[in-house]
């Protein structure tokens, strides 16, 4: 197997690829930014089964290697792995250069910071905003520019229902996701008519390592990453602008956003 290297070691290459087949023109391609996330891998698996060429980016080389092998076994026609930490914005140009050729890009990485810690640890707060908002903006901005100039492509931005209204239990994470939702909506507006499409995804509770520590109650509100991945790919194929997944979150959030603030501020949600 070819060597995968962190892009910040200058003398070494960023990219490694392995594949089942030779280049074919009708094969679709996608980039998963956060390929080692549970949701990112679930999306990648479904695309692999359709024989896509996949560009995977993640920071953990060992995990990335496992994911790469899994996707090849599941039928991906080619997998190109990129080891990179998205917080390292200095490397974004290089990353975007490699993936700018794809049909779709999915941003599926993130951190769920400890809210109580963030209440008196500003580094933790800033780090959460950096990863969940700033770094994604940096990537989306660059990708939008590339896609716009060639007049084609889809950006799938994974935000969260947590971004719809600030709540004491997770408003640092929520504000980063809320800002991301607004940024992606603005991008969609700007790119309308250029052939480039932006899909904003707002999942509810997904059973993944990110939420490992949370009790899965009430159980009906929890789904696995496969379900969310299926919804995302359906919404993408249907050309939707935004997606609540599972669907019922649209109505839950409709109610939540209509509670008057003087009541809402006293609630523990």
């Amino acid at each position: 197997m070819a060597n995968k290297q962190a892009p910040n070691s200058d003398d070494k290459q960023l990219v490694s690829d392995t594949g089942n087949t030779n280049e074919q023109s009708n094969i679709k391609s996608a980039a998963i930014l956060g390929a080692s996330s549970a949701l990112g891998q679930a999306i990648a698996r479904q695309l692999a089964e359709q024989g896509h060429t996949l560009y995977l980016a993640a920071r953990d080389e060992v995990k990335l290697d496992t994911v790469e092998k899994d996707l090849l076994a599941r039928g991906a026609s080619k997998v190109i792995s990129l080891v990179t930490d998205f917080d390292d914005i200095g490397r974004h140009d290089e990353l975007v250069k490699v993936i700018a050729c794809v049909d779709s890009v999915y941003t599926v990485y993130g951190t769920l910071p400890d809210q109580t810690l963030c209440e008196n640890n500003w580094d933790a707060t800033m780090a959460a905003l950096q990863t969940n908002f700033i770094s994604t903006v940096s990537l989306l901005g660059r990708l939008a520019y590339e896609f716009e100039s060639r007049g084609r492509g889809t950006l799938i931005v994974v935000s969260s229902v947590a971004g719809d209204r600030g709540r004491k239990s997770n408003y640092v994470y929520g504000s980063a996701k809320g800002a991301l939702s607004i940024f992606s909506a603005g991008l969609r507006n700007r790119l309308a008519g250029t052939g480039v499409h932006v899909l904003t995804v707002k999942p509810g509770f997904i059973d993944t390592p990110m939420t490992q520590h949370l009790e899965k109650k009430p159980a009906v509100l929890w789904v696995n990453a496969d379900k969310v991945a299926t919804d995302i790919l359906k919404a993408e194929a249907a050309g939707k602008n935004s997606l609540y997944t599972p669907w019922f979150w649209r109505y839950i959030l409709l109610i939540i956003s209509h509670i008057p603030e003087f009541i809402f501020k006293r609630l523990s949600l």
């Binding site: 679930a42 698996r45 479904q46 059973d207 899965k216 159980a219 929890w222 789904v223 696995n224 496969d226 379900k227 991945a229 299926t230």
Partner: peptide, 10 residues
């Protein structure tokens, strides 16, 4: 993927 798998784990 299997919708059936929604039954697992959670």
């Amino acid at each position: 993927m299997q919708p059936e798998q929604a039954q697992r784990a959670i």
